[in-house]
Design a protein around this nucleic acid. Structure first.
Length: 148
DNA sequence: GCCAACGTTGGC
DNA sequence: GCCAACGTTGGC
């Protein structure tokens, strides 16, 4: 899961403990949100910042429901084409699990691209804010945490 | 601020 | 269904 630390950082996540993951407005990313299961863990990735990279871990504690911000005309994420009967967008509830001991920079991920075997994050031009991580990739990424 | 690489929109 | 125009993302 990507977020811009100016908007929502690992500090914010740790402080709040629980966060409704709203504002995803891309169909492919939304479908990945909907596929998430209770207890699934995810990496939090800081994007559009000085040091892009993975900074922490969270966990899904409630399955996808209609994202409330799509109905809120005061929200930046309001979508007038959505209705209660026909919602377009979904959100999940996330729990803070932990910070990484040290951040895994995008550079480091790239340097290990081969081990990560086609990790979607590293694919050219990927802009998805929600990206699947396969179990093997997860293990490989965690190894990078202890070696950096 | 630049710009490549998308995704989305809407006219036809 | 095509595709040009436009908007967005995100690293640099």
């Amino acid at each position: 899961m990507k977020s811009e630390p100016d908007e929502f950082s690992i500090d914010d996540f740790e402080r709040r403990e629980l966060e409704e993951w709203t504002g995803v407005r891309n169909y492919q990313a939304r479908n990945f949100l909907r596929a998430m299961q209770l207890g699934d863990q995810f990496f939090l990735y800081h994007s559009s910042c000085d040091e892009p990279g993975i900074v922490g871990i969270g966990e899904i504690v409630r399955l996808a429901v209609p994202d409330p911000t799509q109905f809120d005309s005061a929200s930046d994420y309001f979508d007038e084409r959505s209705s209660a009967a026909n919602p377009r967008w979904s959100s999940v509830l996330c729990k803070f699990v932990r910070r990484l001991h040290s951040n895994i920079k995008l550079d480091t991920l790239r340097a290990n691209a081969e081990k990560l075997d086609n990790f979607t994050l590293l694919a050219k031009g990927t802009r998805l804010s929600v990206i699947p991580v396969h179990p093997k990739q997860w293990q490989q990424i965690l190894k990078l945490e202890s070696q950096s």
